[in-house]
Design a protein around this nucleic acid. Sequence first.
DNA 1: TTTGTTACCGAACATATTGTTCGACATTAT
DNA 2: ATAATGTCGAACAATATGTTCGGTAACAAA
Lengths: 183, 183
Amino acid sequence: MDRRQQKTREAIFRAFISLLSTKHYDKITVGEIIDLANVGRATFYDHFETKDYLLKHLCQDLFCHVFDCATASEHTHKHLFCCNAPDSVFLHLLQHLQNNDNNLLKLLACPNNDLFLAYFKQNMAQLLLSQNATFDFKKPQDVPQDYWINHVATTFVETVKWWIAGDMKQSPQQICNYFTAVL
Amino acid sequence: MDRRQQKTREAIFRAFISLLSTKHYDKITVGEIIDLANVGRATFYDHFETKDYLLKHLCQDLFCHVFDCATASEHTHKHLFCCNAPDSVFLHLLQHLQNNDNNLLKLLACPNNDLFLAYFKQNMAQLLLSQNATFDFKKPQDVPQDYWINHVATTFVETVKWWIAGDMKQSPQQICNYFTAVL
DNA sequence: TTTGTTACCGAACATATTGTTCGACATTAT
DNA sequence: ATAATGTCGAACAATATGTTCGGTAACAAA
């Protein structure tokens, strides 16, 4: 990829993230983004069809890394979803968050956190679905499969949300314990 | 309230709801609303400062009714949060939904359901908070109070979401059972 | 029924945002 | 060195926002 493209793309992302942390997505204009990123209007539309696509690409860039890690570790361990195990996927993800890779935290804590948490949850559910055999033992017998998966994914994301909203005072292990307790 | 005001207000709400069921909130313009509602532009802005306020007022109108009922029944029963009891608040709310009071269902099932479910959840958490003594017995000992309340509210709202997304094939009692099972 | 008030309308308006086009210029890869 | 590609600024039409105005009709109260 051309070095110029790379710089422009990053400048736009950086500006976008910065704006997202101060105001709601709907209220951000393309004009503000290009001013802060210091790129021309035509250049913006050369990279992204619309503001919505910019958001989409940002989500992809951010989460693919985190979930690639999670998926990779899937194949090396057996009891990923046993939350008390020190190598559970949940614990892994929480540690990723604490390290604040990719400024993900900034976005999950911003006024638009719903946008990103929704994306987060979606990937989470997919991950659980692909691995349901390994954590199925926790499911109550008489509830449907998809209801249960949705419930686990939701609970995890909400746990993360609660953690961040409270300034992450607890350790990942502690959070993992709460998560396990309510499930 | 003047009969004219009432009519205009209702026409705007009706048009707004109708549009919400077909497209996303951000993409709806004031122009579309007033065309469908058949009111003048000036009239719209006479009733609502902005589109955002319209949404806010709509939420208030819709949910105050439902939650007033719930709050009212709070004082007449003792074991509201015992989900198996036939008169639990949860069951009450589910039955309200099934009856589709105020077209609430249409909105909770629309592409913007997040907007309304967020509002729903907020009221839910508040209701739980005001009554935590009566359902505290279910909480695991070692998790914080606010974490638990958020978890219960989230789980209920997600349950409703899942129910609606699946065309509400189950009975309120059945849904209540799922809810109880995962908690 | 009369009278004063209030809500509505249509039209026009300034302002802001979107997404596109153009030629000129700078950077890149080969 | 050369050709391809990315960026720029400026200008553009099209659309959306929120306000203002005088005229008209519906309203409530006497």
